[in-house]
Design a protein around this nucleic acid. Structure first.
Length: 429
DNA sequence: TCTGGGGTCCTAGGACCC
DNA sequence: TCTGGGGTCCTAGGACCC
Protein backbone atom coordinates (compact mmCIF):
# COMPACT_ATOMS: atom_id res chain seq x y z
CA UNK A 1 0.00 0.00 0.00
CA UNK A 2 2.63 2.52 1.02
CA UNK A 3 6.24 2.57 -0.04
CA UNK A 4 7.81 5.95 0.47
CA UNK A 5 8.34 7.07 4.01
CA UNK A 6 7.43 10.66 4.57
CA UNK A 7 6.68 13.04 7.39
CA UNK A 8 3.55 14.08 5.58
CA UNK A 9 1.12 11.21 5.60
CA UNK A 10 -2.56 11.41 4.90
CA UNK A 11 -4.61 12.41 7.90
CA UNK A 12 -8.35 12.35 8.49
CA UNK A 13 -10.04 14.58 11.03
CA UNK A 14 -13.56 13.89 12.19
CA UNK A 15 -15.17 17.05 13.49
CA UNK A 16 -18.31 16.45 15.52
CA UNK A 17 -20.50 19.12 17.09
CA UNK A 18 -21.03 18.57 20.80
CA UNK A 19 -24.68 17.88 21.69
CA UNK A 20 -25.48 19.67 18.45
CA UNK A 21 -29.20 20.44 18.73
CA UNK A 22 -28.80 21.52 22.34
CA UNK A 23 -25.82 23.69 21.41
CA UNK A 24 -27.90 25.37 18.68
CA UNK A 25 -30.63 26.27 21.17
CA UNK A 26 -27.97 27.61 23.55
CA UNK A 27 -26.44 29.88 20.91
CA UNK A 28 -29.66 31.86 20.76
CA UNK A 29 -30.64 31.47 24.39
CA UNK A 30 -27.47 31.65 26.52
CA UNK A 31 -29.45 31.28 29.74
CA UNK A 32 -29.55 27.57 28.84
CA UNK A 33 -25.78 27.25 29.23
CA UNK A 34 -24.89 25.09 32.21
CA UNK A 35 -28.48 23.92 32.63
CA UNK A 36 -29.92 20.52 31.68
CA UNK A 37 -31.55 20.68 28.22
CA UNK A 38 -33.12 18.10 25.89
CA UNK A 39 -34.42 18.29 22.33
CA UNK A 40 -37.29 16.06 21.17
CA UNK A 41 -37.88 14.29 17.87
CA UNK A 42 -40.73 15.16 15.55
CA UNK A 43 -44.11 14.92 17.23
CA UNK A 44 -42.32 15.38 20.56
CA UNK A 45 -41.89 11.61 20.67
CA UNK A 46 -38.32 10.77 21.67
CA UNK A 47 -35.37 12.49 23.27
CA UNK A 48 -32.82 12.91 20.48
CA UNK A 49 -30.35 15.37 21.96
CA UNK A 50 -29.15 15.79 25.53
CA UNK A 51 -26.86 18.28 27.20
CA UNK A 52 -24.01 16.84 29.28
CA UNK A 53 -25.96 17.56 32.45
CA UNK A 54 -28.77 15.35 31.18
CA UNK A 55 -26.41 12.57 30.04
CA UNK A 56 -25.04 12.45 33.57
CA UNK A 57 -28.55 11.84 34.89
CA UNK A 58 -28.61 8.60 32.93
CA UNK A 59 -31.34 9.54 30.45
CA UNK A 60 -30.52 7.49 27.32
CA UNK A 61 -30.53 8.55 23.68
CA UNK A 62 -33.81 8.06 21.80
CA UNK A 63 -35.75 7.42 25.00
CA UNK A 64 -39.50 8.02 24.74
CA UNK A 65 -40.28 11.46 26.15
CA UNK A 66 -43.32 10.27 28.09
CA UNK A 67 -41.29 7.68 30.02
CA UNK A 68 -39.17 10.45 31.50
CA UNK A 69 -41.69 13.21 32.14
CA UNK A 70 -41.32 12.70 35.84
CA UNK A 71 -37.52 13.14 35.97
CA UNK A 72 -37.72 15.98 33.49
CA UNK A 73 -40.00 18.05 35.65
CA UNK A 74 -38.42 17.12 38.95
CA UNK A 75 -34.92 18.01 37.72
CA UNK A 76 -36.07 21.15 35.92
CA UNK A 77 -34.84 19.97 32.53
CA UNK A 78 -35.47 22.44 29.70
CA UNK A 79 -37.42 20.84 26.85
CA UNK A 80 -37.36 21.83 23.17
CA UNK A 81 -39.18 20.46 20.13
CA UNK A 82 -36.80 19.97 17.24
CA UNK A 83 -36.37 22.99 15.03
CA UNK A 84 -34.75 21.63 11.89
CA UNK A 85 -34.70 24.95 10.08
CA UNK A 86 -32.52 26.34 12.83
CA UNK A 87 -30.26 23.29 13.05
CA UNK A 88 -29.82 23.07 9.29
CA UNK A 89 -28.85 26.70 9.20
CA UNK A 90 -26.33 26.36 12.01
CA UNK A 91 -24.92 23.24 10.37
CA UNK A 92 -24.26 25.20 7.17
CA UNK A 93 -22.38 27.81 9.18
CA UNK A 94 -20.21 25.19 10.89
CA UNK A 95 -19.39 23.49 7.57
CA UNK A 96 -18.53 26.82 5.96
CA UNK A 97 -16.16 27.52 8.85
CA UNK A 98 -14.39 24.20 8.29
CA UNK A 99 -13.88 24.95 4.61
CA UNK A 100 -11.74 27.89 5.60
CA UNK A 101 -9.14 25.35 6.74
CA UNK A 102 -9.36 22.79 3.95
CA UNK A 103 -11.25 22.34 0.70
CA UNK A 104 -11.43 18.60 1.38
CA UNK A 105 -14.50 18.55 3.59
CA UNK A 106 -17.07 15.78 3.51
CA UNK A 107 -20.31 16.72 5.25
CA UNK A 108 -21.15 13.37 6.76
CA UNK A 109 -24.27 14.33 8.69
CA UNK A 110 -25.96 17.42 10.06
CA UNK A 111 -23.41 17.62 12.87
CA UNK A 112 -20.32 15.79 11.56
CA UNK A 113 -17.72 16.31 8.89
CA UNK A 114 -14.57 14.53 7.77
CA UNK A 115 -11.65 16.65 6.66
CA UNK A 116 -8.65 15.23 4.82
CA UNK A 117 -5.18 16.71 5.07
CA UNK A 118 -2.43 15.59 2.74
CA UNK A 119 0.47 17.68 3.91
CA UNK A 120 0.43 18.62 7.51
CA UNK A 121 3.53 18.26 9.66
CA UNK A 122 2.90 16.18 12.72
CA UNK A 123 4.40 18.74 15.04
CA UNK A 124 1.70 21.22 14.03
CA UNK A 125 -1.26 18.99 14.86
CA UNK A 126 -1.99 20.25 18.33
CA UNK A 127 -1.97 23.98 17.64
CA UNK A 128 -3.67 23.61 14.31
CA UNK A 129 -6.66 21.62 15.51
CA UNK A 130 -7.06 23.71 18.63
CA UNK A 131 -7.21 26.71 16.35
CA UNK A 132 -9.95 25.10 14.25
CA UNK A 133 -11.98 24.44 17.38
CA UNK A 134 -11.55 27.96 18.65
CA UNK A 135 -12.47 29.53 15.35
CA UNK A 136 -15.56 27.41 14.81
CA UNK A 137 -16.70 28.27 18.31
CA UNK A 138 -16.03 31.96 17.78
CA UNK A 139 -17.68 32.12 14.36
CA UNK A 140 -20.74 29.99 15.07
CA UNK A 141 -21.07 29.54 18.83
CA UNK A 142 -20.96 25.75 18.41
CA UNK A 143 -18.38 23.70 20.37
CA UNK A 144 -16.86 20.77 18.46
CA UNK A 145 -14.67 17.75 19.22
CA UNK A 146 -12.02 16.53 16.80
CA UNK A 147 -10.60 13.04 16.31
CA UNK A 148 -7.48 12.45 14.21
CA UNK A 149 -6.33 9.28 12.49
CA UNK A 150 -4.82 7.85 9.30
CA UNK A 151 -8.22 6.40 8.31
CA UNK A 152 -11.82 7.44 8.73
CA UNK A 153 -12.53 4.50 11.01
CA UNK A 154 -9.64 5.44 13.33
CA UNK A 155 -10.66 9.12 13.23
CA UNK A 156 -14.13 8.04 14.38
CA UNK A 157 -12.69 6.17 17.34
CA UNK A 158 -10.41 9.10 18.13
CA UNK A 159 -13.41 11.40 18.10
CA UNK A 160 -15.28 9.41 20.72
CA UNK A 161 -12.22 9.78 22.96
CA UNK A 162 -11.97 13.48 22.20
CA UNK A 163 -15.52 13.94 23.47
CA UNK A 164 -14.60 12.39 26.79
CA UNK A 165 -11.72 14.82 27.27
CA UNK A 166 -13.51 18.05 28.14
CA UNK A 167 -10.33 20.11 28.31
CA UNK A 168 -8.73 19.38 24.96
CA UNK A 169 -11.56 18.02 22.83
CA UNK A 170 -8.91 16.88 20.34
CA UNK A 171 -7.63 13.30 20.30
CA UNK A 172 -4.74 12.25 18.10
CA UNK A 173 -4.71 8.61 17.04
CA UNK A 174 -2.10 8.96 14.34
CA UNK A 175 0.67 7.07 16.11
CA UNK A 176 0.92 3.30 15.86
CA UNK A 177 1.60 2.78 19.56
CA UNK A 178 -1.44 4.84 20.52
CA UNK A 179 -3.62 2.89 18.09
CA UNK A 180 -2.69 -0.44 19.65
CA UNK A 181 -3.32 0.88 23.14
CA UNK A 182 -6.68 2.42 22.27
CA UNK A 183 -8.00 -0.42 20.09
CA UNK A 184 -7.57 -2.90 22.92
CA UNK A 185 -9.93 -0.79 25.02
CA UNK A 186 -12.49 -0.37 22.23
CA UNK A 187 -15.40 -2.82 22.11
CA UNK A 188 -16.25 -4.11 18.63
CA UNK A 189 -19.74 -2.61 18.85
CA UNK A 190 -18.16 0.83 19.20
CA UNK A 191 -16.42 0.58 15.84
CA UNK A 192 -17.99 2.57 13.01
CA UNK A 193 -20.23 0.28 10.95
CA UNK A 194 -20.49 -2.48 13.55
CA UNK A 195 -23.48 -2.74 15.79
CA UNK A 196 -25.52 -5.35 17.62
CA UNK A 197 -25.86 -8.06 14.97
CA UNK A 198 -22.34 -7.90 13.64
CA UNK A 199 -20.98 -7.46 17.14
CA UNK A 200 -22.66 -10.67 18.26
CA UNK A 201 -21.30 -12.55 15.25
CA UNK A 202 -17.78 -11.32 15.95
CA UNK A 203 -18.00 -12.29 19.60
CA UNK A 204 -19.11 -15.78 18.63
CA UNK A 205 -15.79 -16.25 16.88
CA UNK A 206 -13.82 -14.81 19.75
CA UNK A 207 -13.39 -11.22 18.56
CA UNK A 208 -14.54 -8.81 21.26
CA UNK A 209 -12.33 -5.75 20.94
CA UNK A 210 -11.00 -3.66 18.09
CA UNK A 211 -7.44 -4.90 18.47
CA UNK A 212 -8.57 -8.49 17.96
CA UNK A 213 -10.46 -7.47 14.81
CA UNK A 214 -7.45 -5.50 13.60
CA UNK A 215 -5.30 -8.60 13.95
CA UNK A 216 -7.77 -10.94 12.25
CA UNK A 217 -7.01 -12.32 8.79
CA UNK A 218 -8.61 -10.03 6.18
CA UNK A 219 -9.12 -12.97 3.81
CA UNK A 220 -11.01 -15.01 6.36
CA UNK A 221 -12.99 -11.99 7.46
CA UNK A 222 -14.01 -11.33 3.87
CA UNK A 223 -15.03 -14.92 3.35
CA UNK A 224 -17.16 -15.23 6.46
CA UNK A 225 -18.25 -11.67 7.19
CA UNK A 226 -18.17 -9.83 3.86
CA UNK A 227 -16.27 -7.02 2.18
CA UNK A 228 -17.46 -4.32 4.53
CA UNK A 229 -15.91 -6.01 7.54
CA UNK A 230 -12.74 -6.70 5.57
CA UNK A 231 -12.42 -2.99 4.87
CA UNK A 232 -12.86 -2.30 8.56
CA UNK A 233 -9.93 -4.63 9.34
CA UNK A 234 -7.69 -2.68 6.97
CA UNK A 235 -8.95 0.65 8.26
CA UNK A 236 -8.13 -0.40 11.83
CA UNK A 237 -4.61 -1.22 10.61
CA UNK A 238 -4.23 2.33 9.36
CA UNK A 239 -4.64 1.48 5.67
CA UNK A 240 -7.24 3.83 4.27
CA UNK A 241 -10.01 2.16 2.24
CA UNK A 242 -12.73 4.75 2.68
CA UNK A 243 -12.05 7.99 0.92
CA UNK A 244 -13.74 11.32 1.24
CA UNK A 245 -17.12 11.15 -0.46
CA UNK A 246 -18.36 13.73 -2.85
CA UNK A 247 -21.71 14.91 -1.64
CA UNK A 248 -23.84 14.40 -4.69
CA UNK A 249 -27.60 14.54 -5.12
CA UNK A 250 -29.63 12.15 -2.96
CA UNK A 251 -30.64 8.87 -4.54
CA UNK A 252 -33.99 8.84 -2.77
CA UNK A 253 -36.01 11.50 -1.05
CA UNK A 254 -38.31 10.37 1.69
CA UNK A 255 -40.82 12.37 3.68
CA UNK A 256 -42.88 10.65 6.31
CA UNK A 257 -44.38 11.55 9.63
CA UNK A 258 -46.09 10.06 12.60
CA UNK A 259 -49.41 11.84 12.98
CA UNK A 260 -50.23 14.03 15.95
CA UNK A 261 -53.52 12.12 16.26
CA UNK A 262 -54.60 8.91 14.54
CA UNK A 263 -56.25 9.37 11.14
CA UNK A 264 -59.41 7.36 10.42
CA UNK A 265 -60.50 8.70 7.03
CA UNK A 266 -59.13 8.87 3.51
CA UNK A 267 -59.49 12.63 3.11
CA UNK A 268 -57.22 13.50 6.02
CA UNK A 269 -54.73 10.82 5.06
CA UNK A 270 -54.63 12.15 1.51
CA UNK A 271 -54.09 15.71 2.72
CA UNK A 272 -51.23 14.69 4.95
CA UNK A 273 -49.49 12.66 2.27
CA UNK A 274 -50.11 15.41 -0.30
CA UNK A 275 -48.19 17.78 1.96
CA UNK A 276 -45.29 15.31 2.20
CA UNK A 277 -45.34 14.91 -1.57
CA UNK A 278 -45.19 18.68 -2.08
CA UNK A 279 -42.18 18.96 0.23
CA UNK A 280 -40.40 15.99 -1.35
CA UNK A 281 -40.91 17.42 -4.83
CA UNK A 282 -39.49 20.77 -3.73
CA UNK A 283 -36.42 19.02 -2.35
CA UNK A 284 -36.06 17.01 -5.53
CA UNK A 285 -36.21 20.08 -7.77
CA UNK A 286 -33.69 21.82 -5.55
CA UNK A 287 -31.17 19.08 -6.27
CA UNK A 288 -32.11 19.12 -9.98
CA UNK A 289 -33.49 15.60 -10.23
CA UNK A 290 -36.55 13.96 -11.69
CA UNK A 291 -38.09 10.81 -10.24
CA UNK A 292 -39.13 7.77 -12.19
CA UNK A 293 -41.22 6.28 -9.43
CA UNK A 294 -42.93 7.01 -6.13
CA UNK A 295 -43.38 4.67 -3.16
CA UNK A 296 -46.35 5.39 -0.92
CA UNK A 297 -46.82 3.69 2.44
CA UNK A 298 -49.18 3.76 5.41
CA UNK A 299 -49.22 2.00 8.76
CA UNK A 300 -51.18 1.81 11.95
CA UNK A 301 -49.60 2.16 15.40
CA UNK A 302 -47.67 -1.05 16.06
CA UNK A 303 -47.35 -0.11 19.74
CA UNK A 304 -51.11 -0.35 20.14
CA UNK A 305 -51.61 -4.09 20.40
CA UNK A 306 -55.26 -3.45 21.23
CA UNK A 307 -55.88 -1.91 17.78
CA UNK A 308 -56.38 -3.70 14.48
CA UNK A 309 -53.15 -3.45 12.47
CA UNK A 310 -52.60 -2.69 8.83
CA UNK A 311 -49.50 -1.71 6.93
CA UNK A 312 -48.92 -1.54 3.22
CA UNK A 313 -46.85 0.21 0.60
CA UNK A 314 -46.87 0.38 -3.18
CA UNK A 315 -44.59 1.62 -5.94
CA UNK A 316 -45.94 3.60 -8.90
CA UNK A 317 -43.65 4.06 -11.88
CA UNK A 318 -43.90 7.02 -14.26
CA UNK A 319 -43.67 6.78 -18.03
CA UNK A 320 -41.25 9.66 -18.07
CA UNK A 321 -38.97 11.08 -15.37
CA UNK A 322 -41.01 13.71 -13.59
CA UNK A 323 -40.58 16.61 -11.19
CA UNK A 324 -44.05 18.15 -11.51
CA UNK A 325 -45.74 18.29 -8.12
CA UNK A 326 -49.23 18.24 -9.61
CA UNK A 327 -48.56 15.10 -11.61
CA UNK A 328 -46.82 13.35 -8.76
CA UNK A 329 -49.64 14.16 -6.35
CA UNK A 330 -52.07 12.50 -8.77
CA UNK A 331 -49.90 9.38 -8.85
CA UNK A 332 -49.67 9.47 -5.06
CA UNK A 333 -53.46 9.70 -4.75
CA UNK A 334 -53.96 6.66 -6.95
CA UNK A 335 -51.37 4.68 -5.05
CA UNK A 336 -52.81 5.70 -1.71
CA UNK A 337 -56.31 4.75 -2.87
CA UNK A 338 -55.01 1.29 -3.62
CA UNK A 339 -53.51 0.63 -0.22
CA UNK A 340 -55.94 2.51 2.04
CA UNK A 341 -58.40 0.36 3.92
CA UNK A 342 -61.30 1.88 5.80
CA UNK A 343 -61.73 0.98 9.45
CA UNK A 344 -58.14 1.36 10.63
CA UNK A 345 -56.56 4.09 12.71
CA UNK A 346 -53.56 5.20 10.68
CA UNK A 347 -50.61 6.44 12.68
CA UNK A 348 -48.00 7.16 10.09
CA UNK A 349 -47.63 7.56 6.34
CA UNK A 350 -45.05 8.73 3.88
CA UNK A 351 -43.62 8.71 0.40
CA UNK A 352 -40.27 8.04 -1.22
CA UNK A 353 -39.35 9.56 -4.57
CA UNK A 354 -37.04 7.10 -6.33
CA UNK A 355 -34.95 6.30 -9.39
CA UNK A 356 -33.70 9.80 -10.05
CA UNK A 357 -32.25 11.12 -13.27
CA UNK A 358 -30.67 14.56 -13.66
CA UNK A 359 -33.21 17.13 -14.82
CA UNK A 360 -31.11 18.10 -17.85
CA UNK A 361 -31.21 14.59 -19.30
CA UNK A 362 -34.20 14.11 -21.56
CA UNK A 363 -35.15 10.52 -22.17
CA UNK A 364 -37.78 10.90 -24.82
CA UNK A 365 -40.49 8.30 -24.56
CA UNK A 366 -40.87 6.21 -27.70
CA UNK A 367 -44.43 7.35 -28.33
CA UNK A 368 -44.64 10.58 -26.44
CA UNK A 369 -42.06 13.31 -26.62
CA UNK A 370 -41.63 14.39 -23.03
CA UNK A 371 -41.96 18.12 -22.92
CA UNK A 372 -40.83 19.63 -19.68
CA UNK A 373 -40.82 23.27 -20.64
CA UNK A 374 -44.30 24.22 -19.45
CA UNK A 375 -44.15 22.16 -16.32
CA UNK A 376 -40.65 23.35 -15.44
CA UNK A 377 -41.51 27.01 -15.74
CA UNK A 378 -44.67 26.53 -13.68
CA UNK A 379 -42.72 24.72 -10.96
CA UNK A 380 -40.04 27.37 -11.00
CA UNK A 381 -42.58 30.12 -10.46
CA UNK A 382 -44.17 28.21 -7.61
CA UNK A 383 -40.82 27.45 -5.98
CA UNK A 384 -39.86 31.12 -6.12
CA UNK A 385 -43.00 32.17 -4.31
CA UNK A 386 -42.72 29.38 -1.75
CA UNK A 387 -39.13 30.35 -1.07
CA UNK A 388 -40.40 33.67 0.16
CA UNK A 389 -43.57 32.64 1.97
CA UNK A 390 -42.79 29.13 3.17
CA UNK A 391 -42.82 25.64 1.62
CA UNK A 392 -46.11 24.60 0.10
CA UNK A 393 -47.80 28.00 0.38
CA UNK A 394 -49.03 28.07 -3.19
CA UNK A 395 -50.06 24.45 -3.31
CA UNK A 396 -52.26 24.74 -0.24
CA UNK A 397 -54.37 27.21 -2.15
CA UNK A 398 -54.29 25.33 -5.44
CA UNK A 399 -55.05 21.93 -3.96
CA UNK A 400 -57.39 23.24 -1.28
CA UNK A 401 -55.24 21.73 1.44
CA UNK A 402 -55.74 22.58 5.08
CA UNK A 403 -52.80 23.07 7.38
CA UNK A 404 -54.74 22.22 10.52
CA UNK A 405 -55.61 18.54 10.26
CA UNK A 406 -55.48 16.17 13.24
CA UNK A 407 -52.43 14.63 11.63
CA UNK A 408 -50.30 17.73 12.20
CA UNK A 409 -47.29 16.99 14.38
CA UNK A 410 -47.21 18.10 17.95
CA UNK A 411 -44.48 20.63 18.65
CA UNK A 412 -45.34 22.08 22.00
CA UNK A 413 -41.83 23.20 22.88
CA UNK A 414 -40.61 24.96 19.75
CA UNK A 415 -38.01 27.71 20.01
CA UNK A 416 -38.43 30.86 17.90
CA UNK A 417 -37.25 30.95 14.29
CA UNK A 418 -34.00 32.65 15.21
CA UNK A 419 -32.19 32.21 11.91
CA UNK A 420 -34.99 32.19 9.36
CA UNK A 421 -37.01 35.20 10.40
CA UNK A 422 -35.00 37.56 8.30
CA UNK A 423 -34.15 37.31 4.64
CA UNK A 424 -30.53 38.16 5.23
CA UNK A 425 -28.51 36.14 7.67
CA UNK A 426 -25.77 37.89 9.61
CA UNK A 427 -22.41 37.04 8.11
CA UNK A 428 -20.29 35.05 10.49
CA UNK A 429 -17.04 34.79 8.61
C1' DT B 1 -52.57 9.69 26.29
C1' DC B 2 -47.57 9.68 24.58
C1' DT B 3 -42.61 5.52 21.28
C1' DG B 4 -38.42 10.11 15.11
C1' DG B 5 -37.12 10.80 10.37
C1' DG B 6 -34.31 10.48 7.48
C1' DG B 7 -30.39 8.11 4.58
C1' DT B 8 -26.61 4.53 2.50
C1' DC B 9 -24.51 0.26 0.98
C1' DC B 10 -24.27 -4.74 0.43
C1' DT B 11 -25.95 -9.39 -0.49
C1' DA B 12 -28.55 -13.12 -2.24
C1' DG B 13 -31.39 -14.90 -5.47
C1' DG B 14 -34.20 -14.79 -9.65
C1' DA B 15 -34.60 -13.56 -14.54
C1' DC B 16 -32.52 -13.38 -18.60
C1' DC B 17 -28.86 -13.70 -22.07
C1' DC B 18 -25.55 -16.04 -25.06
C1' DT C 1 -26.41 -42.40 -16.96
C1' DC C 2 -25.50 -37.99 -18.63
C1' DT C 3 -29.58 -32.54 -18.57
C1' DG C 4 -23.68 -26.14 -19.39
C1' DG C 5 -21.98 -22.35 -17.37
C1' DG C 6 -20.85 -17.84 -16.87
C1' DG C 7 -22.17 -13.02 -16.99
C1' DT C 8 -25.33 -9.09 -15.99
C1' DC C 9 -29.20 -6.72 -14.29
C1' DC C 10 -32.78 -6.06 -11.04
C1' DT C 11 -35.07 -6.33 -6.62
C1' DA C 12 -36.08 -7.14 -1.83
C1' DG C 13 -34.42 -7.17 2.44
C1' DG C 14 -30.84 -6.74 5.97
C1' DA C 15 -27.78 -3.97 8.55
C1' DC C 16 -26.03 0.12 9.83
C1' DC C 17 -25.49 5.34 10.52
C1' DC C 18 -26.89 9.92 12.61
Amino acid sequence: MSSTKSNHTQLFALVDCNNFFVSCERVFNPTLIGRPVIVLSNNDGCIIARSNEVKKMGIPMAAPFHDYRHVISSKNIEVYSSNYQLYGNMSDRVMDSLRVFSPDVEVYSIDEAFIRFNSLAKKDYYDYFQKIRENVLQWTGIPVSIGLGPTKTLAKIANSLAKKDKKNSVFDLSSFAKQIEVLEDTQVEDIWGISGRWGAKLRMIGIGNALQLRNASPKKVRKYLGVVMERTVYELRGLSCLNLQQVGPRKNIMISRTFGNPVDNFTDLEQAVALYTIRACEKMRLQKSRAQAIYVFVRTNTFREDHAQHKDGIVYGFNNPCSDTGFIIKAMEQALGNIYQAGYLYHRAGIILMDFVPDNVHQADLFEEASYEKSDSRMKAIDNINNRFGPGTLFYAAAGLRKDGDWQSRTHHLSPRYTTKWDELPHVI
